[in-house]
């Protein structure tokens, strides 16, 4: 999978590149409007991460050009402005998603994966991990062909951990993704634990393990 990151902040770009390369994607970068336009004219990308404010132009303008080229699929707008206007304009111009800065690496990974899944498998592909099989389309989870029932939060946690499999997902990232921004003021993320406990119980017969990494977060591994 080929991904283009258009971002003028070198450190921001480096972080995104590193995290996506860990997922074995082929990552290319552009730091200016012009170089991005050059690359987009020549190559096709499966996913484009597009920063709105570039030193020599607006990312939304780039999006318009992409639309003209018929290459608007798979664009995620990344913006420091978190402005509703930009979001609506971007989605209107054909972008698939809008990710306001700052975001967690796990969230970036999840959004990119969601785009790729939607583009190439139309949501129908069954995700396999260990002896788990998940159909995102109808939110069903099976262990060795036997369906288990998960509530919305348990399902969201499992999906998020699978998307970020073998990687450490911090409690903050998990809480924000599953419970939304509202929970952010919690004095601790201990309340997550009860859902994790339930999920573990339901996954007893699966050969996957939700590992707690000290007090920081969780990691989903194959049980060897």
């Amino acid at each position: 999978m080929k991904i283009l990151i258009v971002e003028d902040e070198p450190q921001m770009l480096e972080n995104m590149r590193q995290t996506l390369e860990q997922e074995k994607y082929n990552v290319e970068t552009a730091t200016t409007f012009k170089s991005a336009l050059d690359k987009l004219g020549v190559y096709d990308y499966d996913c484009i991460l597009l920063d709105i404010s570039l030193p020599d132009g607006n990312g939304l303008e780039l999006l318009k050009q992409l639309k003209k080229l018929g290459k608007v699929d798979g664009v995620i707008i990344v913006s420091a402005k978190d402005s509703l206007d930009d979001k609506l304009k971007g989605l209107d111009l054909g972008a698939d998603d809008y990710l306001p800065k700052p975001f967690h690496m796990a969230e970036l990974n999840a959004r990119v994966k969601a785009i790729l899944r939607r583009r190439y498998f139309e949501g129908n592909k069954v995700i396999l991990f260990g002896n788990l099989s998940i159909e995102p389309e109808n939110r069903t989870v099976k262990i060795d062909e036997e369906e288990i029932l998960l509530n919305r939060k348990e399902y969201d946690i499992l999906m998020y951990l699978i998307t970020n499999k073998n990687r450490l997902v911090t409690k903050a990232a998990l809480a924000e993704h599953v419970w939304g921004d509202n929970i952010d003021q919690a004095d601790s993320f201990d309340f997550i634990y009860s859902q994790i406990k339930n999920l573990r119980k339901k996954l007893q017969n699966a050969n996957v393990k939700i590992e707690a990494i000290y007090g920081i977060g969780y990691k989903l591994d194959n049980e060897q």
Binding site: Q22, P102, M105
Partner: peptide, 19 residues
């Protein structure tokens, strides 16, 4: 607005470091 990018960079750097 200006704080968003440095915050993002710092958070992401540390998240990568955790791994």
């Amino acid at each position: 607005h200006e704080l968003q990018t440095p915050l993002a960079i710092s958070i992401n750097k540390l998240e990568l470091l955790l791994e």
